[in-house]
Nucleic acid binder design. Structure first.
Lengths: 248, 248
DNA sequence: CGGTACCTTGACGAGCATCAAACCCTGTGG
DNA sequence: CCACAGGGTTTGATGCTCGTCAAGGTACCG
């Protein structure tokens, strides 16, 4: 397999959201890279119950990470953005407990799980980045749990819109001021926030009509960020996300 | 500060739930250890908003990790058991986003955050264990999110009882067959599962009356594990937790 | 044009929250 | 030894939030 994108040319590296690479880190990562993966929309990249042999960094596109229950319901654990590192679960559990599915076209950087160990030994810096990635993920999920567990439907939806737009902006997806792609369905939002599709729709509609944002054709435009944050139960300004995170 | 408990004598090491230590790993960990901390019940070990300078491994006792909202509500993110490693959040975020509070008397093994880096460099094996710990945490939180988001009150409570008893058993807390300490209040359970105290009480009572378990004086006795797992929406037998995990 | 995927809206009822109060304990002090 | 207070548990009554059911609307696609 050839690498169409050299790590040195990785489009994500330039973003200020990601910590800078040393030349050595770059080289280690490049060696660890096994190839690339291009995926169509609505395809499953990782499937629950399977043993994942690979790890992926998202180079472009978006998706959802979710878990399905025996009763057929689905919980969206997190939305997947460029820069996200996925598949660690499979290295710790016997088998994957969650699935990852593409929403849009996606491009992945593929790493071999078997060589993960060498990767760690080769570069302590990079190995801490792994821990970092896992910790950030946990933080996101914990915040989602808090929102789903303690907030009303309105706050939950508002919170999701705030976080989704923030994350999109940070990885350079903005197509204009406060305007980012949001290719997900209302059903995805509903499954993420523990609400029914119908109630999600009605609540979302109310928020949009109140002038906090617009959302059509897969593009979200936040027109009143402060109002939206307030509705979400978030402090109007403060940022809880780490401003810079390592990229793997 | 002196170490009353040498890592070599750590009471947790013997448990088969934890991966064995090599002599070298033991030595590295011992060097990293800064001291010990004894805490009374109902005390705050880590507080949201603060910058944590230390990391802790729980040697004994139990507690809760939670996040408080601006509206005064509280989400319990996870229950803390012996062997748990806490404080990583503080190394990744600017400041802690969650608090940790003791429920019982607790004993911690204290590590200095400043020397975390040396720790990682000194032992790649141990550094991967950090990642492992973070990933396991994320898995637990994700499962909680799934339960809170998609299950009825009855399933949520049943799920909590199953997981709590399992975790307690694994770290050697059983006081008899299917009998483990459970020092938490119903309010803690309620805050963990996103339910009101009243509804938690009524639902819990129904489960207990149905003969799945008994719970009094801080001791949980599971009398019908299969029934309880079924009520929780879990497969009757399968184990999703990694059977062995590293101890830090 | 029929078919499918997604969004939207109304009607109805259930699950759960909230309010209120009583009932344990255990500890404390007169 | 008893009165009292405080933390936790338990129970009943009431009503709101949200889920479920049902149907219609729109866009897109073969």
């Amino acid at each position: 397999m050839t690498h169409k994108v050299k790590c040195a040319d990785c489009p994500l590296r330039g973003l200020e959201h990601f910590a800078p690479f040393s030349a050595e880190e770059l080289e280690v990562t490049q060696r660890f890279k096994a190839g690339e993966l291009t995926i169509d929309p609505q395809k499953t990249i990782l499937r629950e119950g399977a043993k994942a042999a690979q790890l992926y960094t998202v180079l472009s596109g978006m998706g959802v990470r979710y878990k399905t229950l025996s009763n057929g319901r689905r919980q969206v654990i997190n939305f997947i953005f460029p820069g996200d590192f996925i598949g660690l679960q499979g290295s710790v559990m016997e088998e994957m407990q969650q699935s990852v599915e593409s929403t849009t076209d996606m491009l992945f950087c593929v790493f071999d799980r078997a060589s993960l160990w060498q990767f760690i030994k080769a570069s302590p810096e990079r190995s801490f980045d792994l821990t970092w990635a896992a910790a950030v993920d946990e933080h996101l999920v914990a915040e989602a749990l808090t929102t789903v567990g303690q907030q009303t439907a309105e706050s939950r939806i508002a919170w999701a819109l705030v976080r989704l737009s923030e994350r999109a902006e940070r990885v350079g997806l903005s197509s204009g001021p406060d305007e980012t792609p949001l290719p997900f369905r209302q059903q995805d939002l509903a499954d993420a926030m523990g609400l029914s599709l119908v109630h999600t729709n009605k609540t979302l509609r109310r928020l949009l009509e109140r002038g906090y944002a617009r959302w059509s054709d897969g593009v979200l435009t936040v027109t009143d960020r402060r109002g939206l944050r307030a509705a979400a139960g978030l402090a109007v300004d403060d940022e809880t996300m780490p401003t810079r995170r390592p990229l793997i």
